[in-house]
Amino acid sequence: MIYIHKTGSVNRKEGEELDVKAAWKVVSPKMIRRTDRFIQLALLGAYKAVGDNVLDKGTALYMASGQGNLAVFKRLRDQRYIHKQPPKPVDFINSLSNTAGFYVAQYFGIYGKNLNVSRQGLVAETTLLLAQNDLELGKEQQILVGGVDELQEPVAFTKRTLGICDERLLGEGSNWMLLSAQQEGALASIDVVKKQMHAADVKECLHTLDKSCKVAFGLRCSKEMIDELLDGAERERFVYEASCGFYETATLYALNSFINEGEGELLFIENYKENFRLIKVNTLPRF
């Protein structure tokens, strides 16, 4: 079993405003140079989780992202092919895959393993599973896990790329949690179910689940899919969707929201192309 010790979220839904630079200036008077909005978003979310606390130097950092820092690649493309200029040195450096993770680690003074996980579909779930495995195997003592995705314009194109229907609003966010195998002082326990499931397995799981356990569904689950999975079963739902547009790592927002607002047990279900991942979170008494 692994435990969540701190959580922090920055979340914006399509149509809302989020001035990341201004928000960062509120928490830290010193602007970190050579960072773009994606990196600043990562820093802000991580700061919301860690604050001014000093982390153990050996803390690892696993950062998930569905699209990565796509904006920097757009800038590099424009510089090269539209303006016919060489890339700006800072943009070139920031196009490396885990630059955001580097800046977060540097800010908090942590020198552990620094991983960047990027893929379409279930990226937060697989990153959490990786963290869980490494903690359970004793490979890491503490891991700062985050998910960062920046909303890309034009929205219609991004929806098509992500495979999201037109009705679903997009969003962006930077959601972080500090995980360890130690229970003392933890906010919640978390168990990422290792087995990837099909709909029939999920149905069975839902029918055998304790009645007191709330259920939440990922933003890739359509209403029809949810109805089919519940199959008429009465389940108390944890609803976070009203404040969250779609982005690949929104799972971490849902889990953080439950820990901050909810109480008890939550089963979170997400899928990609009908392959399902389940995460159980159980809040612990707070003193």
């Binding site: 050579r34 303006h83 200029q85 060489p86 700006k88 040195p89 800072v90 450096i93």
Partner: peptide, 12 residues
């Protein structure tokens, strides 16, 4: 790195 940035700024 600032020198490179300034060099790019002078160019553009």
């Amino acid at each position: 790195l600032d020198a490179l940035q300034i060099s790019m700024g002078l160019q553009t």
